[in-house]
Each structure stands twice: as C-alpha cells, then as structure tokens.
Design a protein around this nucleic acid. Structure first.
Lengths: 216, 216, 216, 216
DNA sequence: CATGAATGAGTCTTCATTCAT
DNA sequence: GATGAATGAAGACTCATTCAT
C-alpha cells in the first residue's frame, strides 16, 4: 500500500477543475505525430528484419516506445496501419525521385530521375526494402493502387514527352518503363545484399544502358 | 533358379534372390512423394492469395488433403518447408529458363532465354509470384543463396561469353544482368495484375530493348 | 487546502495534491494478485491429481477461472510458473516450520519443529504433496536450489547449536538431518494414503525416535 | 527406381519356403526380451533426465533402438508400460534389499538390509531415481500397491520378529519403518545430488542412528 | 490521448497410437 | 514380431484487439 510518485515529464499535462472534480487536458493537439512516426519507423525496421509473419503489434509498440493500445489510437487495425505506412512511404519516395527534374531535356531529366532514385535508395535503405517486400506481397493487391500510382505521374509525363519528341523507340509505355526503374531496383537489392557498389562509374553505366534501351 | 517377384499390394515391393539369400527392395521410398508435392502446391497457392502472415499450416494441410502433422513427416518445420519449396521452385525455373539455348550465337541465345523465361512465367503464374514474394522477404536472407544461384550459372556463362566475343558494352556484369531479367520480371508482374499483355510484338520489343541496352 | 481523494471505481486509486500539482497512485499493482494465487492453487491441485504430464495450461486456467493467455501475463512459460510455484510454496512451508522455535532448549526446539511440520502437513495436504512430487522430479535439478535451501537455514542453525552443546552423536550433519525430517515426511505420505494417523501418541513417538536417533 | 541392398545384420532372420512362396521366421521366440529391456532402460534414463511430461514414446523408441510401434507389441500403452516398469524395478530392488539376511540376529539383519539397500542404490542410480519420481507422482495412486508391497514383506517380518523379541520401542510399526528406510533414501538423494558421500564411516553412522531410533 | 491488463481465437508443433505391410 | 508412415487430438504459447481507467 505504498504511495509512489509519478515522474511528471511529458505525460502529465492537465488541469484540474476543482469544482467539478474532473480532469482536463491542457495540450489539445491530441494525436501526437511523433508517436505515429515512431510506430512507422519501428514497423519498417521489424518488417525488414523479421517479415510480416513475425512482426506482432506488441513488438512494434515496444520498439516505438508506446503501448500496444496506443497504435489503435492512430490506426484502425494492423492492416490499416500497414497500408497507410506503405502509401506514406511510397509518396515520400516519389517526391524525392522527381525533385528538380523540370526544365531539362529528356535525357538529362531521365538521368536525374535515376540519380534521385539511387540517392533515395542509399539514404533510405529500410524504407526501400519495406517497399519491395510490400509490393511483392498480396497486401499490394488489396490496395487501391491508384493512390500509389499518383505519386509517379511525373514518370508518365516524362515518357509521354519523350514520345512526343520522338526520341524513344516505338514501343509501349510499359515496355519503356520496364527498362528504366527495374534495373536500378535490382541493382539496389544487390547493393543491400553487399554484392554491388554504387560507384560513379556504375551509376553512369546504369544511366547509359537505360538510355540505350529506350532511345530510338 | 531365377529371381521371382513376390506379389505386393501397394508399398512393399521386393524380390528375393534365392541364391544369395538376401533381400532387395525396389523403390525404398515408403514416403509418398505425391503428398510432398501436394503440400508444395497448396503452400504456393495460399501464400500468393493470403501472404506469409495469413497462411497457417492447418490451411495448407487442408488444401493439400493431408493432416497438419503429416507436413512434419516431410519437413522439420514451417521455415524448413518454405525454404525447400523456394529452392525447389527456383531450380525448376532455372531449368526451364536455360533449356535449348546451346549452339546459338549470343544474341539468339539471349533472346531464347528471355522467351523461355516468359514462357515459364505464363505457364507458372503461381510459382513465379511465389518466387517474387519470397525473394523480397526476409526469408531470403536466411537462405544460403549459393544453392539458388547455382541454378543460374548458365546466365553467368552467357554474359561471360558475350564479353569474350566483345559484343557487350564495357560495363560490370551486374549492370548487364540488371537489363536482362528485371525488365521482364517487371512486365510479368504487370501482366499478372492485368495491366500488360505478352503479345508477340511486345515480346520482341522487350528482347530488342534488352539487346539495345547491353550491346556495344 | 487538503488532499482529497478522487472517487475511483475499481482499479484507479489516486489522490491529487493540489498544492504540488502532482499525482500519486495508491496501490500501483494493476496486475491482480488474486489471479496469480488462483493459478497457483489450481496448478497444485491438478498436479497432485493428474501429474505433470496430464496437467495442461488450459486446464489450469479453467480451474483458476482465467484465460490461458492470462497465465502468460504473470509467468514466462509453464516451467517458469512451476518453478516459482515451488519456491513460493517451499518458502511458506519453511516459515511455518520454524515459527516460534526460539528460546527453547535443543530438544524442545526440535520437537517444536517436528510438531510445526506435522501441523503444516495436515493443514496443507495439497501443498505438501506438490512439494514431494516436484522435489523428486527432474524439475528440481533445473532449479537453483540455493534459494529453496535458504528457507531452511534455521534447521542448520539448530543442528549447529546442538553440536556445540554436545548433545548430538558425533556424526555428520547430513546424517543427523536424515533422521529428523525424512521419517516425518514418510509418515505424512502414508497419512495421505490413509495408512497412518497422526494421533498424539504417534506424534510423540515420532519425536521420541528422532531424538533417540540423534542424541548422544 | 533403384534397387538397394539391405544390411542383413540382426533383423533378417528368416527362411523362405520356395513352394508356398511365403516367408517364415526362424527364430520363434517372438517377443524379444532384449527389446523389452532396452525399452525399460531407455524409459528410465529419459524419465530421470526429462521427466514424465517431456518423455515421448518416440524418444524412448529411438533410444531403445526400436520403432515406436514396437513398444506397442510389448505393452498396451504408455501407462501400462510405465506401471510394469515400476513393478519390475521395485521387485528387483526388493530382491537385492533382502538378499542374505536370514539367520542373523535382528540388529545384524537390519544392518544388512541397510547395507544391501545402499549397495543397490549405488549400483542402480537411474533405477533408484526413477522409483523416487514414480513413487511421488500420482501414477502411484493409480497402482494396486499390493503387488509392490509384496516385495517388501521381509521387512514386515523383520519388524514383527523384533517386536516379538522385545528389542524395539513400543511404537507402531509404521513409526519404526519411518526410521529405517527414509533416512537412507534421503541420504541417497543427497548422494546423487553430489552433496553426500557413502563412506564407511557414514554408512556405519546411518545404521547406528537407525538402531538408536528403534531399539528399546 | 494513452495505457497495461486481459483474453478468445488462433498458431505451430508434438505425440500416443494405429495402419498397412 | 517389427516397422515407418500417417494422423486426430491436444498442448504450449502468441497475438490482435478490447477494456477500463
């Protein structure tokens, strides 16, 4: 029956209404975005390490430094969280990928996209691997992919522009796409397996081969 | 003094050599290989439909028409089964991919490999998708990849030969590889999502772009 | 400006000190100790009735009136629970056994210990039988017995004192011990098998024979 | 479809009747006692090492060098085997314990029994520990103890004789018994835990204390 | 908003026993 | 008599989620 003092760090942040004997919260920004982010980071890390079937919510919570039930404050359920995480991650990747690619000619623009992509990969190992795992899992088909695809419209526009300018081979867009991103993605996977290095020379080669493939 | 065959009902199947007074068994395999195969097929199907985290052994057993415990007669545990399934599947794919590719010049040989690969993909949708999911999951890193890689030595030899003949760009093997298989794989994924058709024209295009990419 | 108690329904139970604006909790134990105790009782009962190999966690849970998973809130696993239960039980027995034995001469003190032990046995049939079963099982050797032994230091001290006073035969402590507790334990086993009664006469006899055995 | 030669060690031991085309066994002593013994030994060992709840039939079979189903040739089921093993073991112990104890006076006879018991213990560690574990488990109460008790009638006779000769204290038989065997058993347990040595001196002490306890 | 306890519904795996030879 | 394969039933344990505060 001991009385223990609670540390009053971040969590105790309320006022007491002496009259009504009820407790209010001072800080009205209820949903704490840093917690959400912590949950996302923990999920990505654990998913890459242990896979979908060995990543329980409780583990995620522990790594994120929150209670399991807190996750349910931010997300409806595990699937909901996973899908939102995917969309969030994919969107961030898209943003990086097409940054600063305007106002260049097609070839330079494409080279820039590839370099951006490689930069993103190198700076976001876990995010990249998570995207790969998710994309190749049946979770993907449950998703309304439209939203994810929107993040990549710049790529479609790029190809469209190239076609208009007559610099690409006369093949379907899908065929062109297949020789732009997938080879880089493959190289990245080898990179993270320790089998490949993104040296300047190799990056140039990758860009060169992509261009050779698609250019008329 | 001949060797007579004793009537056997189903599994016992031996002959007695009266001279030597020793017993030989024909077909020592008491374990029924068809059960193993049924387990494999069920696993692939369910894994593609529901993913790693929603494919319990009980479901696999039910689909395979065996008892859950029977799976453990053939495999140590779930992981063991998954890994053996992967290796088995990968090996079969490798065999198909490099069939009938000898005695051609490099370009034709490469085209044949691509066509073989596309044929395999179209005839083995589930196997292909399973390989993708597995490859992009953390299960992969638990695996001694050497064994899986052996199934693809013909590809390495092909590239090596091309390099000796001086027909490829002067870039690393890994860069070359990245423009041969990954684009096809990507197209296949779109194909199974219903976004792409493997028409003759498109297959030719894919081959053409691969060649454009890697040839000097 | 006093300290007022906020009405609590069941578990939350805190007071607010309006001056210091800090919150104290009374009774931090959110985990309900009565559940733990119920689990212990159920385990002992079932173990005595059915043995180690026929006492599943599910049965224990049912008898304790909790969910099987609740047991894992309190214990790491079955072994952990069993060991903690043993230690807990042994400690309680030790406490009873050596209660009110100070300030007597050796002979009286020893008689008191024996009487205490018999009292404990009669009042704690299930606990006693559980201890016997556990002690004679391989679980015992997995245990760091040191902790269990600590509960019996009074016995060692008693023997040590008797030796100093020169009232015991000149034999090893272990030999002395063997003629104090084991005969009582054996009688108790017969008692619970319905083959023996702890009458006053018999209790006196048991004490007398123990003393005859060890006294010089 | 390969033909494999089977090693013809111990198992192939039959004649072939060429006319009837059927196979007979030469060795007509069907139940192979050595197998039963091997099963017993394996069971005792594993039970002492792992306990009742962690000793599956399959493990016993493996240790005994037989197939699991072979155990069912000799015993109805696991319980049946365990009980027969207990009775068999207890009987063997009883036989050793009362060997060569005739024609001595009470005191010598009792000393001999104790020495026999200690000899048995030292030569049959595993059997002894198994008996302890079994005796203190609920398996015991399922047993018709009468059979087991019969092996110990010599002890009852000994006590009866002593009482007739007027050398024992005037207490119940059960009280006397309690100071004969249990102390030795306790010492034995300590012995196997490495806490006690059966030196000549200690054995003499044990006998001396037993006699002090029970003699008038 | 945040949380620790609690749990029902599963999950993987084991195992005593039977079956077919 | 002996056996390896097969399995139904059960066991320990997990986990997404909810509850009560």
């Amino acid at each position: 029956m001991t009385v223990k003092k609670i540390e009053s760090t971040k969590k105790l942040n309320f006022r007491v209404d002496y009259n009504r004997m009820t407790v209010y919260y001072t800080n009205m920004r209820y949903k704490d975005n840093s917690k959400k982010e912590a949950i996302y980071q923990a999920t990505i890390l654990l998913l890459n390490k242990d896979g979908f079937s060995a990543t329980p919510m409780s583990k995620i919570a522990k790594h994120a430094g929150v209670s399991p039930s807190t996750i349910y404050v931010y997300f409806e359920n595990k699937d909901d969280m996973l899908k939102k995480l995917y969309l969030d991650t994919k969107q961030k990747m898209g943003a990086k990928m097409f940054a600063d690619t305007d106002g260049m000619d097609i070839k330079a623009s494409l080279a820039k996209v590839i370099r951006n992509y490689i930069d993103y990969i190198r700076e976001n190992k876990e995010a990249f691997l998570f995207l790969q795992q998710f994309t190749n899992s049946p979770y993907m088909s449950e998703l309304d992919d439209q939203e994810a695809n929107n993040y990549f419209t710049p790529m479609y526009q790029l190809v469209k522009r190239g076609r208009q300018e007559g610099v690409f081979k006369n093949v379907d867009d899908d065929v062109l796409f297949a020789y732009i991103e997938p080879p880089i993605t493959e190289a990245a996977k080898r990179y993270f397996r320790g089998e490949f290095e993104f040296t300047d020379v190799r990056i140039k080669s990758l860009i060169e081969l992509a261009w050779s493939a698609i250019k008329k």
